[in-house]
């Protein structure tokens, strides 16, 4: 029987060890540039981009009182428009968390400490909604990780992880996202792996998802055990990716295949 959107599909493919030059800073390209015009059109038009449904949800949650303190995000932060530039800085060091955290972890920190509400679980629709609503306010801003020594340490750990060969295929993130970028891997074109569009609406997921979900997908794809959501190893990778893409424009909410 034919089915659309079937459960598991195994893509088996042989890939040659291409040798090509690493991505130079000047040739950095967003994943957007590797997509077909139909997918690009979806991202470019807010009246068609399904991620705008999550944004609308997040904007409503921003104004809702919650938790033991019965405060809304807006009660402390004012209009969500005032978060302009915030999403372009994350991950960053947080004195409250005593470590480097990403934007969704900062949001949950406000939930637990300032609202005294329960933290939203990873990939929860409300969390993704609020994160996307904050990210959209920084659209067009250059990624600008702050100069913090703790953040530099995280970026270094992330860079080492980016170069480590993983999985049964023994490929590093850099092998795929620099040497093989622009080549086809089965049906997919391998992008340079920049985090500029997150959270994204992924056609594959048929929903909005986080950068950590994307990274875990890459790990699973090469048959490597993915780190759990929220793991410091994932935040380190996110910190490195943001630094590698520093100066590129945030384009959230992106649409990806």
């Amino acid at each position: 029987m034919r089915k659309i959107g079937v459960a598991t599909r195994v893509i088996a493919l042989a890939m040659l060890g291409f040798v090509s030059l690493a991505v130079a800073q000047s040739t950095r390209q967003s994943g957007f540039d590797f997509m077909q015009p139909a997918t690009q059109a979806l991202q470019k038009d807010d009246t068609q981009n399904p991620a705008m449904l999550w944004v609308k949800d997040g904007q409503a949650i921003w104004a809702q009182r919650d938790g033991a303190t019965q405060k809304s995000c807006a009660d402390c932060h004012g209009d969500i428009k005032r978060t302009r530039g915030v999403a372009a800085r994350y991950p960053q060091y947080s004195a409250e968390a005593k470590g480097v955290i990403n934007l969704s972890q900062q949001i949950n920190q406000c939930r637990t400490t300032h609202q005294q509400a329960k933290a939203w679980p990873a990939e929860d629709a409300s969390l993704l909604g609020v994160e996307t609503a904050i990210a959209v306010e920084s659209r067009g801003q250059p990624l600008a990780p702050p100069a913090q020594s703790q953040l530099v340490d995280a970026q270094k750990r992330g860079e080492a992880a980016f170069d480590r060969r993983i999985g049964q295929v023994d490929l590093s993130c850099r092998d795929c996202h620099e040497s093989l970028a622009g080549k086809r891997l089965g049906g997919n074109i391998i992008p340079q792996g920049h985090p500029t569009g997150y959270p994204i609406y992924r056609l594959e997921w048929q929903a909005v998802g986080s950068l950590q979900r994307r990274l875990r997908n890459c790990m699973t794809a090469v048959r490597s055990e993915p780190y759990p959501y929220g793991a410091s190893e994932l935040v380190d990778l996110e910190a490195y990716l943001a630094n590698r893409a520093a100066g590129m424009q945030l384009e959230s909410p992106g649409v990806r295949p």
Binding site: L16, G17, R223
Partner: peptide, 16 residues
């Protein structure tokens, strides 16, 4: 050098 990858994907396909 030749490497072989088994790409396990949930529902994905690149449709041309």
């Amino acid at each position: 050098m030749k490497r072989r990858i088994f790409f396990a994907n949930s529902v994905g396909l690149m449709a041309s």
